[in-house]
Computed example of a mutant assay.
Amino acid sequence: MPDRLTPEARSAHMRLIRKTDTGPELAVRRAAHRLGYRFRLHRRDLPGTPDLVFPKLRKAILVHGCFWHQHAGCRLARLPRSRPEYWLPKLRRNQQRDAAAYEALDRLGWQVLVIWECEAASDDTIEESVRTFLQAA
């Protein structure tokens, strides 16, 4: 996003970034459905509002964007060069919020799988991850 945008235009641009129903999330949903699993979406009563929830299995899948959740070692998680005073604390808060959500879900007896945006590029990789996670005891 160019630095020359006004704060109002920048805010309008940020509103266009989807929180749910992203491409990677839809790919994970399709894979789980293909494997025969049924699930609930975005359960707000669970910490971190997991993207896919399998209540009977007490398992949840979170689909994270590599940039927004700062996937370690991923090329998509590059830090912005403009406005680091804004972006660095924001991205750090996202990571702290994620860690707190994982811990809270674990305390409640839920198992969690995180699928990263970069991993969601391959349907085979997604399907294998979901199958392995959901079939594990």
Rank of each mutant, 00 (worst) to 15 (best):
G65Y: 06
P55A: 10
D51P: 02
P47H: 06
L113K: 12
Q96R: 13
G36A: 04
G23M: 11
R107F: 01
D123K: 11
Y86V: 00
H64G: 01
I126G: 05
R93W: 04
E117D: 06
L108M: 12
L108Q: 13
A60F: 14
A99P: 01
V53L: 12
K59R: 15
A101Y: 02
A60E: 14
Y86D: 01
L88Y: 01
L62F: 14
A101R: 00
A99N: 03
R58C: 04
V130H: 04
Y37H: 15
T125F: 09
H71C: 07
W87A: 06
R78Y: 15
R43M: 15
A77W: 01
D123Q: 13
A60N: 12
L113R: 13
Y37Q: 10
D106F: 11
P24T: 09
L79Q: 13
C74H: 06
F39L: 08
R93P: 01
E25F: 04
D98S: 00
H42N: 15
A60S: 15
W110P: 10
A100G: 06
A99D: 10
L57R: 14
V130M: 09
R44P: 08
H69V: 10
S122M: 00
W110I: 03
L41M: 02
A77Q: 06
W116L: 03
L52H: 02
V53I: 15
R38S: 15
G36E: 12
T125P: 00
G109R: 07
H33D: 08
G23Q: 12
R30E: 15
D98T: 03
E117Y: 02
R75K: 15
K90E: 02
R97A: 07
Q96I: 10
S129D: 10
Y86L: 00
F39Q: 03
K56C: 05
N94Q: 06
T125E: 12
L105N: 05
R40H: 12
I61V: 14
L26Y: 06
I115W: 05
V114C: 06
Y102P: 00
A60Y: 12
R34I: 09
L91R: 02
T49F: 02
L62A: 08
L41P: 01
N94F: 00
K59A: 11
R38C: 04
N94G: 05
L26R: 13
A104E: 11
T49A: 10
L52V: 07
A99C: 01
